[in-house]
């Protein structure tokens, strides 16, 4: 999948990964250069907005928890991690992956981390969509009355 190779896409995949999943995939990458924290993992919130009537003016729907982290590899590459929820380990792992994907390690990290994350996210979505499809109503009309 080439889709998960652009930064916006991989950051989105990392943000939505199930808890602990990034670190467990990252551990299979093998030795990676040690990173220095630029902004230590920090949990906070983001105000989610909706639109009146779906397309009208924005309104505040409520907040969601997000954890972020920024770090730097010895080569100077900076990685940013934003993950949903409050896991500092996940945010740091996401930032490490983001940094590595901008280096020579990119192919290996993509194959071991982001490609599986993309496949897993697609499988989760496909399974729910297939269950929803099974509950789609097929109307049929009965002929009634005298003819």
């Amino acid at each position: 999948m080439t889709e998960s190779t652009d930064r916006k896409t991989w950051l989105g995949l990392l943000a939505r990964a199930p808890q602990g999943r990034i670190a467990s995939l990252l551990s299979q990458v093998g030795p990676v250069p040690p990173a220095t924290d630029l902004r230590r993992p920090e949990a906070g919130s983001v105000m989610v907005q909706g639109r009146a009537g779906g397309t009208g003016n924005a309104f505040n729907l409520g907040e969601m928890t997000v954890t972020r982290c920024s770090l730097q590899l010895p080569c100077g590459t900076v990685g940013h991690g934003y993950v949903q929820g409050r896991s500092k380990t996940d945010a740091r792992a996401a930032a490490v992956v983001d940094a590595l994907l901008q280096t020579d390690h990119a192919d290996r990290v993509h194959a071991t981390v982001t490609a599986p994350l993309a496949a897993e996210a697609a499988a989760r979505q496909k399974s729910r969509a297939a269950k929803a499809a099974a509950t789609r109503v097929e109307f049929f009309t009965l002929v009634r009355g005298e003819d």
Partner: peptide, 14 residues
């Protein structure tokens, strides 16, 4: 107790 990082773009319910 949570610092707020910002606001999201409006979600696209369509």
């Amino acid at each position: 107790t949570l610092p707020r990082f910002g606001s999201s773009l409006p979600v696209d319910t369509g």
